[in-house]
């Protein structure tokens, strides 16, 4: 196995608020290999976006990283300790250089009063030594590559003149024009219609092949994950509860929460199957449950409920690197 492009180890992130320290991400570790698409799934409030932003140090001023947290980015000839980059000048290598990000709401991600083209040129001038003329040429090429008709004309337009799907394409073109090694896509298709979503997903798959970059794909839609990701990590209330290949997680989910998510999805091939919601709501991060964070909503605890309330489950890993944090899984191993 080649060494991973980025390794996250024991990432714990808290926010200082008026109500005290709020834990948003708790002891999360994962790797992304070069060319791999890692899907990060979870409900709103599970800490997906905060985890992703940590990779680029984009979290707000009031964030506190735990001392054990470590994020290592491996480029061709050097290892970068991401969390040690304090000055904006040093952070340029991760912000838009080696890592780019696409956000959920493409209208909010473009400056409304600067043309799309000028915004694309600006970042190329910062991250490469191109001349403005070269940057313009590259930008128009990228717009064409993502399927925007009349790119030279569109280049001069503003975000409001683009439709939703086109804005997301322009966003992708912009994120990819600096040739990043890792693309973070935070719910890139959630605001789009299904037909446009299908176009964007296909485009992203093509681009992964073409540029051989890694993607951290954040979404709450398991269908989108099944069609795009190589590996999946499931998050709940700041904890990683299960990781594995997309087939392992979707075909043989090991954590009750993953099973709950899958059961609550409407399935098209069996219209009469009942929808089983995960009972209750995600607890407030101010008031994290003791023991297993999922025990308040878990329906499968059975005879070991007491253990779930008091002990934090460790990770169990099977031979094919399918990891799960659940007491039930540990029990099965012993029996």
């Amino acid at each position: 196995m080649t060494s991973p492009l980025i390794s996250v180890k024991n990432l714990t992130l808290r926010f200082r608020t008026d109500e005290g320290l709020v834990t948003a991400v708790n002891d999360v570790s994962f790797d992304i290999a070069p060319g791999e698409v890692l899907g990060l799934v979870g409900e709103s409030g599970s800490g997906k976006s905060v985890t992703a932003k940590a990779l680029m140090m984009l979290n707000a001023e009031n964030s506190v990283y735990d001392d054990n947290s470590q994020i290592t980015l491996r480029l061709d000839d050097e290892e970068i300790d991401v969390l040690s980059l304090k000055r904006p000048r040093d952070q340029m290598v991760i912000r838009g250089g080696a890592i780019s990000m696409i956000f959920q709401e493409p209208m909010a991600s473009f400056a409304p009063a600067i043309s799309i083209g000028d915004q694309m040129i600006e970042q190329l001038l910062i991250h490469s030594d191109m001349t403005p003329a070269q940057a313009k040429e590259v930008s128009i090429e990228m717009l064409e590559r993502v399927g925007i008709p009349e790119p030279a004309h569109r280049f001069k337009q503003y975000a409001f003149e683009f439709s939703g799907g086109m804005r997301q394409r322009a966003m992708i073109a912009m994120a990819l024009s600096t040739k990043p090694r890792l693309l973070i896509a935070d719910e890139p298709t959630t605001a789009l219609d299904v037909t446009i979503q299908a176009q964007v997903i296909e485009l992203m798959k093509d681009l992964v092949d073409e540029f051989h970059m890694s993607i951290l794909f954040i979404t709450h839609d398991l269908g989108v994950i099944a069609q795009t990701a190589d590996r999946v990590a499931v998050m709940y209330l700041g904890n990683l509860v299960e990781t594995g290949t997309v087939r392992q997680v979707i075909n043989t989910p090991a954590h009750p929460y993953t099973r709950g998510l899958l059961n609550s999805l409407p399935k098209l091939d069996d219209l009469d199957a009942p929808l089983t919601p995960v009972p209750g709501d995600i607890p407030s991060p101010l008031d994290r449950p003791s023991g297993c964070v999922f025990h308040t909503r878990c329906v499968e605890t059975g005879g070991i409920a007491e253990k779930c309330r008091t002990q934090i489950p460790g990770y169990t890993t099977d031979s094919s690197n399918h990891q799960v944090a659940c007491h039930l899984a540990t029990q099965e191993d012993q029996s």
């Binding site: 939703g164 979503q197 299908a198 099944a226 069609q227 979707i250």
Partner: peptide, 19 residues
């Protein structure tokens, strides 16, 4: 266009051009 839950489902979404 609805993404299938089966990772081995190789069917390609019947793509609609444009918007």
């Amino acid at each position: 266009a609805i993404p299938s839950l089966d990772p081995d489902d190789q069917h390609v979404a019947q793509k609609l051009e444009g918007e």
